[in-house]
Design a protein around this nucleic acid. Structure first.
Length: 208
DNA sequence: ATGTCGATTCCCT
DNA sequence: GGGAATCGACATA
């Protein structure tokens, strides 16, 4: 549920099944969250670990706001959790697309010039991929993702899409594993996913 | 001014 | 399962 954003480790599994919506510019794009990772404040792998900087400032905002950052050529979307100032968030790692598949595909193709046309689960089965599919960018850093009502059309710019979260319709099964791609705190079981869902991204390293 | 380092993705073996 | 691509943020001088 969206009212359980009190801490990253609790919010990460609770966000599974919630829907991520982009609207306001063209056809609605909707996906169900099927994979997340928690980054608690005391975690060495958390971007907020070591203090506030220009890049991670949004992570110290109120729970329910977005923290967006770039890595290499990719953009990643997080949901801020906990008391404002605590510096914690949940990374959205994968969604299963529900609406606006054609627009998502077009956005992916546009963003990956010269690469293969994204088909099947490659459309949204990774944190950078889903941001491409929904056109999530740095302009969303710090914006509120939780809204009482459907967002009004008038945000800052009429042509800019609005990004927000909707509660889960049904509670999905939840599985847990170590997180992917990090070098510190590699064993912490803070990755959550819907077991068997084809849009869940690559498995974490096997246990040695 | 310069060096390091990724919460990634894609391509290859 | 490994490595390159590639670039901005950050730390150090």
């Amino acid at each position: 549920m969206l009212d359980h954003l009190g801490d990253a480790a609790g919010a990460a599994p609770a966000l599974l099944g919630c829907r991520l919506v982009r609207t306001g510019d063209g056809p609605r794009r909707v996906g169900v969250i099927v994979e997340t990772e928690a980054y608690p404040p005391d975690d060495p792998a958390c971007h907020a670990y070591g203090g506030r900087t220009a890049r991670n400032a949004a992570m110290f905002g109120p729970a329910g706001s977005a923290y967006v950052y770039r890595i290499h050529r990719s953009t990643c979307l997080n949901v801020v959790t906990g008391p404002a100032g605590s510096g914690q968030a949940v990374l959205i790692r994968a969604i299963e697309p529900l609406e606006g598949l054609d627009v998502m595909r077009a956005a992916r193709e546009l963003a990956t010039v010269g690469n293969a046309i994204p088909d099947g689960t490659a459309l949204t089965n990774g944190p950078g991929k889903l941001c491409q599919a929904l056109d999530v960018g740095l302009e969303h850093d710090g914006v509120p993702l939780i809204r009482r009502r459907a967002p009004r059309s008038a945000s800052a710019s009429p042509s800019a899409g609005v990004l927000y979260l909707m509660p889960a319709l049904d509670r999905p099964d939840v599985a847990c594993s170590p997180r992917i791609g990090i070098s510190r705190a590699r064993d912490a079981p803070l990755r959550f996913f819907v077991p068997g869902n084809p849009y869940v991204s690559g498995r974490p390293r096997r246990a040695s």
